[in-house]
Simulated assay, not measured.
Amino acid sequence: MKPAPFDFIRAATLAEALDALAQAGEDGRVLAGGQSFVPMLNMRLARPSVLIDIMGVADLRGLEVAKGALRIGAGVRQVELARWADLTARLPLLAAAVPYIGHVQTRSRGTVCGSLAHADPSAELPLALIALEGEIHLRTKKAHRTVAAREFFLGMMATALRPGEMIEAVSFPLRRAGQGFGFREVARRHGDYAVVACAAVAGPQGIRLAVGGVGDVPTLRELPDPASGDLDEALNDFAWSLDAREDLHATPRYRRQLVRRLGRDAIEEALRCRS
């Protein structure tokens, strides 16, 4: 299929992109890497009247460490994040998750913020952002605001973005002393979206586990230390509290079983790596 007709604007500056988005309102959409959005255009699942390409905006192509977090601009491709020299040392959870995002070919074109805007509940980047309690920086022509990851994802491919608003950047908190991280995923094939994925963060204040691929949004839960003997019961309660979906890939029961198994493995890895 071919997409429905639309006007195309290749923005050269952030101001130009925001001005075009403000004029388009609800009928405008931003295009970055396009690895998820272009297929939706072709299948006419998305029908914008105006498409604004931001990949020529230099101000959106930066990777910057600031205020204890890595700030990633909306034009940064996933492969650029993967090649960041300090990724393993300073963001080990992302270092573990990035190789599971699609394939080399899609990571070379897809953007970090584009994946977050797409908001697939099985995608790795929204899961990691929620586990790390990161933030998304949103911008309009007249204002900007910052939204916590937990508040940004509202449902399957639904976010807190408002008409005329775009993601300017995202901030992933960097590793702090005493933290460890674990990541586990099951998919039908490497590069497919996860049937279930678990991201764990273990720190001095306790353990938190984020689960993706089960419900309509990634879900975060604080859990007890395994030494207390209550972890299996807590994981079971967590699994059954999730509104697990059924599709061609898995039943709700299978997904809940994976939450128990993968969740424990991810937590144990996080505890081993805590330093």
Rank of each mutant, 00 (worst) to 15 (best):
E165Y: 13
C273N: 12
A69I: 11
D247Y: 15
T106S: 05
R145E: 01
G114E: 02
P173V: 01
E151V: 10
L231S: 05
P224G: 05
D237T: 11
C273K: 11
L161C: 08
H144K: 05
F183P: 05
P99F: 12
R47D: 07
L116S: 00
D27N: 10
F172W: 10
L93W: 11
G68V: 07
M166N: 04
I167Q: 01
R83W: 15
L129K: 03
R162T: 10
R189F: 15
G102F: 15
E26R: 11
A177R: 09
A117K: 02
L94F: 04
E133L: 05
A69P: 09
L63M: 15
S115Y: 07
G178R: 01
A58W: 10
L235A: 01
E26W: 13
R175H: 07
R245C: 07
E165P: 09
Q35N: 06
A22F: 15
T159M: 03
E168A: 05
A194Q: 06
D7V: 12
L63P: 10
D7L: 13
V214Y: 11
A58P: 12
A17N: 06
V147G: 00
A119Q: 02
R256S: 04
Y100F: 15
L223E: 03
A20H: 10
E16T: 03
E168L: 05
Q78Y: 14
R188Y: 13
R47Q: 11
S171N: 06
I9Y: 09
T88M: 03
F238W: 11
R90G: 01
D19T: 15
D53T: 04
Q257E: 15
V147A: 00
R272E: 11
A227H: 07
A12W: 10
P126H: 02
P126Y: 04
P48T: 06
T146G: 01
